[in-house]
């Protein structure tokens, strides 16, 4: 009788061990998926970029250029906006920073923590940043992102990632 009870206990412990191992395996797979997750594509950010391309900037006032034209000017190395003389790349950076900060609230206790905006041109050696480096704001190292990218002529792409 004693032996049978002991056998039952051993069997029970073994089963509990198996359950624990299986649970840990599932947990590991789930966590690995979460950390390796690609940024989720966002229709909202895609809409944002499409609308942002149409913005009339200060470049060239009183015949101002749209943001999409200023991006091309910055990419081709045009140093000055016509009539006003500002650097198109500076206007591009300032305009995008202002529009992004006006559209979302970036704070620790906000759903959106930070952003990364990168404008790149495709070359034979890989993508090259039009602004020399991406534009950052807020907290950018986080586990979840929403992002979207929109193409422009000449192989240029504008990509915005919002950190959640």
């Amino acid at each position: 009788m004693k032996k049978k009870a002991q056998e039952e206990m051993v069997g029970f412990v073994l089963i509990m061990l198996v359950v624990a191992v299986v649970f840990l395996v599932f947990l590991g797979i789930y966590l690995r998926q979460a950390t390796n997750a690609e940024p989720t594509s966002s229709a909202e950010i895609s809409q944002f970029l499409e609308a942002a391309f149409e913005i009339t900037t200060e470049c060239g006032t009183p015949f101002p250029r749209k943001l999409r034209d200023v991006i091309l000017m910055c990419d081709t190395g045009i140093a000055n906006c016509p009539l006003t003389g500002e650097d198109p790349c500076v206007i591009l950076k300032e305009t995008m920073e202002n529009v992004i900060k006006s559209s979302w609230v970036f704070a620790e206790n906000s759903p959106t923590k930070g952003y990364v905006l990168d404008i790149t041109r495709e070359t034979t050696t890989g993508p090259v940043s039009v602004l020399n480096e991406p534009i950052f704001g807020g907290e950018i190292s986080c586990r979840q992102y929403r992002s979207a990218a929109k193409p422009l002529p000449d192989g240029i792409t504008m990509k915005l990632e919002i950190c959640l």
Binding site: E44, Q47, F48, E50, A51, A52, E54, I55, T56, T61, P62, F63, P64, K66, V99, S102, S103
Partner: peptide, 23 residues
């Protein structure tokens, strides 16, 4: 949803006016 807004701005185009696109 984000949209582009177009309005007439009489001060553009050297005073003859043009459309201005906002966000």
């Amino acid at each position: 949803a984000f949209v582009s807004l177009a309005r007439w701005d009489a001060s553009l185009a050297g005073g003859s006016g043009d459309y201005k696109y906002e966000f």
